[in-house]
Amino acid sequence: MADLDRIGRLEEALAHLSRVAEDLSDVIARQDAEIARLTRKVEMLMRAEAAREAENGNSVTLADQRPPHW
């Protein structure tokens, strides 16, 4: 009977771990999609800012400038 209890606890723990793994996989998939979306937005903003600076006659575009902390 002790073996059956132990097997039951192990099956319960396995089911819990499987559920956690599925939940984490869902979170990672959502984060990956969000990172891709934000990356596209940043690239779009960088292109728009470079175009704006080029229109204003600036010789060095923002994308080519070093950050102030360098």
Rank of each mutant, 00 (worst) to 15 (best):
residue 50 A to M: 00
residue 36 A to F: 02
residue 68 P to W: 03
residue 37 R to K: 14
residue 34 E to V: 06
residue 16 H to N: 13
residue 18 S to K: 06
residue 43 E to C: 03
residue 24 L to T: 05
residue 50 A to V: 00
residue 39 T to E: 15
residue 26 D to H: 12
residue 17 L to V: 08
residue 61 T to S: 10
residue 33 A to T: 08
residue 4 L to C: 07
residue 24 L to I: 13
residue 41 K to E: 12
residue 34 E to M: 10
residue 39 T to W: 08
residue 58 N to E: 09
residue 13 A to V: 15
residue 61 T to I: 09
residue 37 R to P: 03
residue 17 L to I: 11
residue 53 E to M: 10
residue 47 R to I: 01
residue 37 R to N: 14
residue 44 M to G: 11
residue 17 L to R: 15
residue 30 R to A: 09
residue 47 R to P: 00
residue 31 Q to M: 10
residue 54 A to Q: 06
residue 36 A to E: 11
residue 35 I to R: 11
residue 11 E to H: 14
residue 48 A to H: 01
residue 19 R to M: 07
residue 13 A to Q: 15
residue 67 P to W: 15
residue 62 L to F: 07
residue 63 A to C: 07
residue 60 V to C: 04
residue 16 H to K: 11
residue 67 P to L: 15
residue 45 L to V: 06
residue 32 D to E: 10
residue 40 R to D: 10
residue 21 A to D: 09
residue 40 R to K: 09
residue 55 E to F: 04
residue 50 A to W: 01
residue 27 V to G: 00
residue 42 V to C: 04
residue 22 E to P: 06
residue 47 R to C: 00
residue 1 M to T: 14
residue 36 A to R: 15
residue 62 L to V: 12
residue 8 G to S: 15
residue 7 I to A: 12
residue 27 V to R: 10
residue 25 S to D: 14
residue 6 R to I: 09
residue 36 A to N: 10
residue 13 A to C: 10
residue 32 D to L: 14
residue 24 L to W: 02
residue 28 I to C: 05
residue 25 S to W: 06
residue 67 P to V: 13
residue 24 L to K: 14
residue 28 I to T: 07
residue 64 D to C: 03
residue 23 D to G: 03
